[in-house]
Design a protein around this nucleic acid. Structure first.
Lengths: 185, 185
DNA sequence: ACGCATATGTCAGTCTCTGACACTTACGGC
DNA sequence: GCCGTAAGTGTCAGAGACTGACATATGCGT
């Protein structure tokens, strides 16, 4: 079994336990035992307990960054951002049910939500320079950050709304709605 | 000495230590010793080490909530949010230098930023209902959250930009700039 | 079979945070 | 002034996350 496969397997076990008992009520020891490994090995796959839920998102971030970069320059930055995150939602394939369960655990645990937003700040540092180049005038750095971080908030909101909803509205629809509400015209 | 005064005193000691050695390099034990108390007592004043930097912000949150609530209903929600956060910036009096140093520590430590974002989510839950009432149409909950959380992002960005800047531009100016960049017209 | 790199378990230790208990201090009623 | 209560503090023990060090096992190419 490849290293990534083992990681995914442990994450799956962890998320199931979190969903049932709550993030804080489950110890690393329990996850490790349920996965047939030692607690020390768990920490070799995940630097922190939270990472079993959040995981490594650099691949996705790069996808968004590249999509954003390839958007036409005459398009408004806000529309480019919407398209880039829409592309991510469209491309993130896999077990929809598992994704939803993961998002549910994530959105219902304050410390996990915070950690996730923290990861989004890393994304913002990746995306901001691209937006910055497409802005004119003063304080482009601040303005680019404001746009990117607001976009990330909308993205996060679309995902959590989708995860907590019963019906099967697509996350892309929630994304469009959030972007339309906030963004500049 | 009142309880709040003691708390502020310990927080001041802690922030100075964090600013000099970095948040992770300073133990609770060291803060306690430098403050002339035991580590156990430190945790009686602050539930977590991070709270010595972030502190209790419910008073400020209530100020923003009340300001927001008293804004005219025919004003656009985005403008009301801008005014409410502007009011907070105008009213938060005290040692500007200390505030700036606190913000610098906060914005340069990942775990602190995460904790701060967690606090913002609490604020969002407080403000969203007010905005929600002033929206028409579908999905008001999602749209209110999108507006409020984007406003919080702008607020946070204004503060960090101010803290990291050399010149003495007012945070209110950065706030206006960020709001003008993102908000709907 | 051998050598090597990778993966794992065990152990010891640090640090944050909590509960329990004992002790001191401050204060209001008598 | 004396006493009972309440609030604040220190000490101790312990859980839980995480790290470094060391030894062992496992797989793989030669």
């Amino acid at each position: 079994m490849t290293r990534d496969a083992v990681r995914a397997q442990i994450a799956a076990v962890a998320i199931d336990l979190f969903a049932e008992h709550g993030f804080d009520q489950v110890t690393v020891e329990q996850i490790a035992t349920a996965s047939g490994i030692s607690a020390r090995s768990f920490h070799r796959y995940f630097p922190a307990k939270e990472d079993a839920v959040i995981g490594d998102t650099t691949v996705w971030a790069e996808l968004v960054r590249d999509t954003l970069d390839q958007r036409p320059t005459d398009e408004s930055p806000w529309e480019s951002l919407r398209a880039a995150f829409g592309e991510l939602l469209a491309r993130s394939d896999g077990d929809r049910d598992r994704q939803r369960r993961t998002m549910r655990v994530l959105s219902s645990t304050p410390s996990l939500r915070a950690r996730n937003l923290e990861k989004h700040l890393m994304w913002a540092r990746m995306f901001a320079p691209i937006v910055e180049e497409r802005l004119d005038g003063d304080h482009v750095e601040l303005r680019a950050q404001a746009l990117v971080q607001s976009a990330l908030v909308c993205f996060d909101l679309a995902l959590t709304t989708w995860a907590d909803s019963q019906d099967d509205t697509s996350p892309v629809d929630y994304l469009a709605l959030a972007f339309a509400t906030v963004g500049p015209r």
